[in-house]
Design a protein around this nucleic acid. Structure first.
Lengths: 211, 211
DNA sequence: CCTGACATCCGGGTAAACCCTGAGCCGCGT
DNA sequence: ACGCGGCTCAGGGTTTACCCGGATGTCAGG
């Protein structure tokens, strides 16, 4: 059986070293490259055409999910497993939307990592047990907030709002009408199902839309 | 020259694996034990009496700093380096207060880690360059009028505001007038030197006044 | 004592946020 | 070709945020 050629992406050398030392124990795994950010991930994917990508979400510059989206578009055959420290539902949902075949927490241990890679390589999907239960919970919930689908323009407005800018200031900065800025803000209020701007900011930060 | 006997503490096997693989390259370093939490760290320290402890801060159960404090009390000779992902001033200050001889970010690379261990082992102190500059900044800048001087009542209002409650709702909940609630909010706007409620929320979260 | 500092409380007026409705333009995918 | 969705804008209305002021009470220090 052929080796499984893996591309590893994480901005921390420490984490990469950890994964490498977990993976070298199994001869079938071959780490063909390491990326420090989303951009590297894209170029290395093009150069190396790995069988599978293991990537962190939060990385400087282009983040893992953005990069993944582009990879999936160009090379749908490449399997992707997302590695993250975050147990928040939104993170997981976003990862799934980009087409990731697996989602693992960094609290993972060696044997589970191997299992996950093998399952995904053979066409399956794998999620940490904890992740599975989180997903199950959110399915059981009758109401699906379905939030997080903030458009680029909305995010632009959101960031200015968080900086304390008034609607008029934002309108001037973006060169658009006050009405338009209001539309964007109010659309976000509805999408996020919040009552006012204050809660919008809190929720946006909670969901890591804002830093 | 003798080996440096290290005790490693982190709740993620992945991180421990990363450190180990970074450290095995240097023969002088010997990892004599690994702890998954603060309690383990204490018992292993007693059993193994290592030369130095490398520990994460956030761990389930007893955290790294609590454990470090106890270790330092019982075995003052053991050097301690704190490993953390957090660049916040408070984290660093707390680590220093517990008597840690070093503070490293997990973005560290191998050579710097070796250097840090050697420096600390030889009686010195070591901090990531980034950490040093953060500390320097906070010393250099006398900092704004200690924005933490939010009064209990104000904080109460602040939390409700962050929950998306309107001034009227807050007034009813607290059993006071709308005007009073507004006063509290506006006083906070002035204290925090922000323009509106949206920015107030962002800043409050930034300063850990709100979760 | 009393004065200043501060937390808490309240009122009125203006600017802004909020909300509904409706609309045109454009890029994108089936 | 058509619909869908993002971005743009407007009228006109209600509600709220924002800021001006002033009022209590407490409490420490001169």
């Amino acid at each position: 059986m052929n080796n499984i050629r893996l591309l590893l992406a994480d901005d921390h050398p420490l984490i990469r070293a950890g994964f490498k030392s977990m993976l070298v124990k199994n001869e079938r795994f071959e780490i063909v490259g390491e990326a420090e950010n989303g951009t590297d991930l894209l170029t290395l994917t093009a150069e190396l055409s790995p069988d599978m990508i293991l990537t962190d979400i939060s990385m400087p510059g282009m983040n893992g999910l953005e990069a993944l989206q582009k990879v999936k578009k160009q090379y749908p055959a490449i399997k992707c497993i997302v590695l993250s420290m975050h147990e928040e539902r939104e993170y997981i949902m976003n990862a799934l939307k980009t087409g990731a075949e697996g989602y693992l927490l960094k609290s993972i241990e060696g044997p589970e990592l191997e299992k996950a890679i093998l399952v995904v390589f053979n066409g399956g999907k794998y999620f940490s047990p904890l992740i599975t239960s989180i997903l199950a919970d959110s399915v059981a919930r009758p109401e699906l907030p379905e939030v997080g689908d903030i458009t680029p323009r909305e995010k632009e407005v959101l960031e200015l709002v968080a900086q304390g800018k008034s609607t008029k200031q934002i309108a001037d900065l973006l060169g658009i009408s006050i009405r338009t800025v209001e539309s964007h803000r109010i659309n976000m209020l509805k999408k996020m199902k919040v009552n006012n701007t204050a809660e919008l900011i809190r929720k946006a930060i909670e969901m890591k839309i804002l830093s």
